[in-house]
Design a protein around this nucleic acid. Structure first.
Lengths: 198, 198
DNA sequence: CGGTATTACCGACAAGCAGTCTGTAAAGTG
DNA sequence: CACTTTACAGACTGCTTGTCGGTAATACCG
């Protein structure tokens, strides 16, 4: 047979994959461990050997999804813009990634409900919120925008993007809303512009 | 004994009061129906006679809390300002009301997690979100601000206020953060100002 | 290579929980 | 005063998460 390391990774992967799939399609809350175990083809004992609790498994899936989304968004960001344009582009790229129903369900709808917003934020800090904070700080450092607090502004913008994603996925004509969101984000951001450099 | 109507209202009140108290202090998720029943001094049968499910009870408490918060906020709004200043003042008044730990826990932290954001939004539409939309529309009608979509902007601002409340209650020096939030809101709103009337 | 330790996994079981269901008693109705 | 309707009571059920003693496979060691 395989080494312990390989067995471990394979089993963990089976659990995470089945969980990611069920969470995205049926919702996190609605997915019982029982359903998950039979979907993954894994025993209850195996699951609790890999994860201390159901919540820890949810957190692991959440984190993986967050990392994947930010990676995809980062891969499409254009270069050679002003810091402010880059900030906006980054926000929109993330919004588009997270506007897919399965992703939104895990990262925005069910995730925070299942894990609590504190735990989600701790995870997000390393991903979307972290990138957003960095982009914002960069724009502040170049003098293009001025804010009372970078951390505060980043969290407020993050909240806006999450809400925007919920709106986009809930609506029929996504393109129209998407355009309105972009216009609104642009307007709001213009309010942060430094007086000298509008 | 009393009339049926009186008995009914009294029992319902006992349940709602106990629920509101436990939800605010221990959290919604952490409050079992068992604990609730003994705190309210009411039988399981009585509770399920008044509410179809635990979730319905949560929704009732949520709605009552939302109505109370918006009423308190509305009572302190100053008059005689421009529509834009009034919009900002309304936002801050609501933020202050909702920045009390018990209120925030029910309306922002645990409520949406327990009820799902869709159901919460449906309730909020009649309260905070409704007022915010109206204030925003008024500012648009007077020509002081311009937005791509009133509904969209209202929901994004609502999300900002909710996140701001979470930040305020989580921090030690609330006054400082509160001031930063006000400054940031003012800046963001200035981005919505009509070009003609800055 | 034989024995022991460690690790991955198994699955029956326990305990807590929301919700149900059969009663009962009090108030309303004609 | 019969009868209905309504408010409430509480034992019970089924589902769900997490546990725990046990097993089998790999890793380590002399």
């Amino acid at each position: 047979m395989a080494t312990q390391e390989e067995r471990k990774r394979a089993t963990r992967r089976k659990i995470m994959d089945a969980a990611g799939d069920l969470f995205a399609h049926r919702g996190i809350e609605a997915t019982t461990t029982e359903a998950l175990l039979s979907a993954a083809g894994v025993s209850r004992g195996a699951m609790y050997h890999h994860f201390d609790s159901r919540e820890d498994l949810v957190a692991a899936v959440y984190e993986e999804e967050a990392a994947a989304a930010i990676a995809r968004a980062a891969a499409r960001e254009p270069g050679g813009l002003s810091a402010r344009e880059r900030l906006l582009a980054g926000c929109l790229a993330w919004l588009d990634e997270v506007s897919r129903p399965g992703v939104a369900r895990i990262l925005i709808e069910d995730g925070p409900a299942a894990l609590g917003w504190r735990r989600c934020r701790r995870i997000e800090e390393q991903y979307s919120l972290g990138r957003l904070t960095a982009a914002l700080r960069w724009a502040v450092d170049t003098g293009e925008i001025r804010v009372a607090s970078v951390e505060l502004t980043a969290r407020l913008m993050n909240a806006v993007l999450a809400e925007a994603a919920l709106i986009v996925i809930a609506v029929n004509d996504q393109a129209e809303v998407r355009a309105d969101v972009e216009a609104t984000l642009r307007a709001l951001l213009s309010g942060l512009a430094s007086p000298s450099k509008t």
